[in-house]
Write a protein that binds this DNA or RNA. Structure first.
Length: 286
DNA sequence: AGCCAGGCCCAAC
DNA sequence: GTTGGGCATGGC
């Protein structure tokens, strides 16, 4: 089995990365490594010190996909310094989730995952996505005794029935996902590639995404942050309301105030600040 | 039993 | 443009 070893990886912690709510298809193994599916591949990651090990990947796959997926080119040390200088009250959250990185995930799976996420909880979201993949996705491989499946393409989802998806626990979101799959096909991959480019601003991309059924302001911000590289996006869910009230003494319903604060203090890195805060409130501050 | 979870849709102002 | 009720599902 292929095993790649990458040296000199800083600001990188697997639990922080995979348990901060940005992704739903990575699971922790007994030895602290994580196995997950993306890009039609399944790999296992482990890190000791600054040495990252990738099992079941070729060097080509690393260069063409995983390096970007794991956001390895970004200097998070610099970003963390920048955030603390902007507002020192975020320092405890950064100290807690110091190894977070924002994954650069595939656009269709991210749209689908966060449509499913609405008014839902992380264990149920993960379970629903896994059922959809196992029942309707393409088989990838049997790996360490387990079968892995890709998340189905929009063409596949568009042809499912409402019942197919409610059977996966989607509830009323089933209709949104099917309708948005049809819309995604109609718009085409080029449309979303364009939103990813630097030519399109955060605000412009936001206005496009919220046209999709099942995609409101919060879900749009997650898609912008986790797939379209718009790091200014600042998703505000029930957890963020809690932590913004706790640390910054906002009224829990003052979403506009929170968004304005994030823009003014964290600016182009607001989304990264958001992940530290989200991880903090879910794992530490209760 | 009722509340909560990475909220959105739609109708009524 | 803003506000509020309704909403599938499962864990606690």
């Amino acid at each position: 089995m292929n095993k790649l070893v990458i040296e000199g990886i800083k600001d990188f912690n697997l639990e922080h990365i995979f348990q901060c709510g940005q992704c739903f298809r990575w699971t922790q193994n007994k030895d602290e490594s994580f196995t997950g599916v993306a890009g039609g591949k399944v790999i296992t990651l482990s890190i000791h010190g600054t040495t990252l090990t990738i099992e079941n990947s070729s060097l080509d796959d690393f260069d063409s996909f995983w390096a970007n997926y794991l956001d390895l080119e970004t200097d998070y040390g610099k970003i963390k310094d920048n955030l603390v200088q902007s507002d020192e009250r975020i320092a405890p959250a950064i100290a807690t989730g110091y190894g977070i990185r924002i994954l650069n995930q595939e656009i269709w799976e991210t749209i689908a995952s966060f449509i499913i996420s609405a008014n839902n909880n992380i264990p149920r979201i993960s379970a629903s996505i896994e059922k959809i993949a196992q029942r309707f996705g393409d088989f990838i491989a049997t790996y360490n005794g387990q079968d892995y499946y890709a998340f189905p393409k929009p063409e596949k989802i568009a042809n499912l029935s409402i019942d197919d998806l409610t059977a996966c626990g989607l509830g009323y979101r089933a209709r949104y996902l099917i309708n948005t799959a049809k819309k995604f096909i109609e718009l085409g991959n080029e449309y979303f590639d364009h939103l990813l480019s630097d030519e399109v601003s955060y605000k412009e991309a936001f206005d496009e995404l919220i046209k999709l059924e099942g995609v409101g302001p919060k879900v749009a911000n997650c898609i912008l942050l986790f797939s379209l590289k718009k790091r200014a996006a600042f998703p505000i869910d029930t957890w963020m309301k809690k932590v913004m009230a706790l640390i910054y003494e906002f009224d829990e319903e003052d979403i506009k105030g929170m968004a304005k604060f994030a823009d003014e203090h964290f600016g182009e890195y607001a989304g990264i600040a958001q992940q530290y805060l989200f991880y903090y409130v879910r794992n530490n501050a209760n």
